[in-house]
Amino acid sequence: MGLGSSGRFSVDSMNKPLPARRLSPEEQKRRRKRSLALALSLGALVLLFYVVTIAKLGPGVLQRPL
């Protein structure tokens, strides 16, 4: 697993890709929930930026010189 005989990492072993491992159903479920939470957080952030922009600039946000 990337450990040398001394129990420490070597640079070469760190560069090797980790062996693929199939996720258990429980891990898949947790990953789905994490992905969903991340998506919701990003969506909320977009909404927050939009609302704050309107609040700070008001209708003037649409009135800008071309």
Partner: peptide, 18 residues
């Protein structure tokens, strides 16, 4: 250097719930 083997086995896969 002290990372437990069991953590290595799951490296790259988060075990945490939301």
């Amino acid at each position: 250097t002290e990372t437990p083997t069991e953590t290595l086995a799951t490296a790259g896969v988060s075990q945490g719930d939301v």
